[in-house]
Nucleic acid binder design. Structure first.
Lengths: 114, 114
DNA sequence: TTTCTCCTATAGACTGTCGACATGAGGCCG
DNA sequence: CGGCCTCATGTCGACAGTCTATAGGAGAAA
């Protein structure tokens, strides 16, 4: 996937993987890679600043924990984060059907098969 | 539509509207607005630099013409531009189904209804 | 004559992504 | 014991490309 095409959609992805359960940064990367069959490989230089930004916006809340000697910062969605996620989803639907309409492509059914 | 979410997809949109016939800049804006039911309102500060970039990349070729006293620069797709468009379309399909998979949304059918 | 639409264009601010780098603990292998 | 890999977090500076604002000019319409 072309780098930078994710721009503007990363927030949605992060919020989405945190919907069901809290995760720490590294686990978010792995989860995104898994859900996208390896297509999404979020660099740490993108992920960590994004997490801080989302926390600053009040969409995430983080807590430190130590597993063994390892420090982890675990992020969980706030109520505002859930609302933001709902917005992101609906914006994505609009966006995606708009672009598809212009390109003359019909979005395929990969999401259904998954 | 949130500004900036188009980032990385504008090239595809421009190439797509030029697929069937050459158009000048202003007409491209109108065409995009029309095809997207007004959702896409490309500012001139985005469009014109993008057109020059695409021409520099060899995807477009422009010619000046005068209708009345009005100067227009008309852009047409080159052969390389058509190949680029095909690439953009296939990248869009991948991108779109990837994001949809992560968000857990199924792209809706707006493209079919249009 | 003033204002609207058409039409092109640039400059500068801004923002978010990226690649590279830095740091450190734990685990495994030889 | 030494080295290297994985896990884990984070920053910095470069960069690209979008946006807002601004500019200019022709034709049409009021």
């Amino acid at each position: 996937m072309r780098p930078d095409s994710l721009r503007g959609h990363i927030d949605a992805l992060i919020l989405a993987v945190l919907e069901d359960r809290p995760l720490h940064g590294y686990a978010i990367m792995e989860e995104l890679a898994k859900l996208s069959s390896g297509a999404i490989d979020l660099p740490t230089g993108t992920l960590y600043p994004a997490l801080r930004r989302l926390e600053r916006l009040g969409y995430l809340h983080s807590t430190w924990s130590a597993t063994g000697g390892r420090q982890r910062r675990t992020y969980r969605l706030t109520a505002a984060g859930r609302r933001a996620l709902a917005d992101e989803r609906s914006e994505w639907r609009t966006f995606s059907s708009t672009i598809s309409a212009v390109l003359g492509t019909t979005p395929d059914r990969a999401a259904d098969r998954a």
